[in-house]
């Protein structure tokens, strides 16, 4: 099953304003992707609109969120239901500092409906680190029944390997995300034998429409297995 579980909508300040609910699922449809996750920074605010848009095209849209920890590590999270995602989203929002977004610097943070209409704009800057440690984030997400994986671990910024040197054992992490930048996971793993025990997701981390599923990745398991079922 072709998947892309790391996509930013126009609600992420760094997400292009063309990343509307319908455009995202439309692009996924064209690319032959069957299941996607909307994973904006520290919010699940545009998931519902994308889910409704996805139903029209037969694209399954999972609720997700890219959470930034206090250590400035990005964690990719996905949830079995929107309700659960919203519960975790509420906790994350409460732990985001009250810094106002400056759209002229960071970009707009648009809430959109299923018709791609702007319904409002988030005022708090969403690309800030929460005050939750990476352990807190894993505990909160897993206790709620969600999926958590250190995001784009091969990157030099916002990555667990850069910021923390290695994946803390205390997380009991099972999955890691390796970005599209890495050509061969096999070769990459040779340079990091300590990662051999983790299962791997590959995603586009698209902030622009053209990047959605730009490389083809197939889900190595059933969706339910992500949630430990």
């Amino acid at each position: 099953m072709k998947y892309d579980f790391h996509l930013h909508s126009a609600l992420s300040p760094c997400g292009d304003s063309d990343m509307t609910p319908n455009n995202i699922v439309g692009m996924a449809y064209v690319a032959g992707v069957e299941v996607i996750a909307i994973t904006d920074h520290n919010t699940v605010g545009n998931v519902r609109a994308a889910q409704i848009a996805g139903e029209k095209l037969g694209i399954k849209v999972l609720a997700g969120m890219e959470i930034e920890t206090a250590e400035e590590v990005h964690v990719l999270t996905i949830y079995p239901t929107l309700d659960i995602a919203r519960q975790v989203g509420k906790i994350v929002y409460e732990h985001l500092p009250s810094v106002k977004n400056k759209p002229e610097i960071f970009g707009h943070q648009y809430y959109m409906n299923e018709n791609d209409e702007i319904e409002g704009e988030e005022e708090k800057l969403l690309i800030s680190p929460t005050t939750l440690s990476i352990e807190d984030v894993f505990n909160i997400v897993k206790d709620a029944g969600g999926f958590a994986a250190p995001a784009h671990i091969d990157r030099h910024s916002y990555s667990v390997l850069t910021n923390l040197g290695f994946i803390p054992e205390e997380l009991n992490a099972e999955w890691i995300e390796i970005s599209y930048r890495v050509d061969s996971v096999k070769e990459y793993m040779k340079s990091r034998p300590d990662l051999a025990k983790y299962k791997v997701l590959r995603n586009s981390d698209a902030h622009y429409l053209k990047d959605i599923a730009a490389r083809e990745f197939h889900l190595p398991c059933e969706i339910e297995e992500l949630f430990g079922k």
Binding site: E71, S133, I134, N163, L164, G165, P168, E170
Partner: peptide, 8 residues
């Protein structure tokens, strides 16, 4: 940095 990995 105060994450647990500082010990290691």
């Amino acid at each position: 940095m105060s994450n647990i990995n500082i010990v290691a």
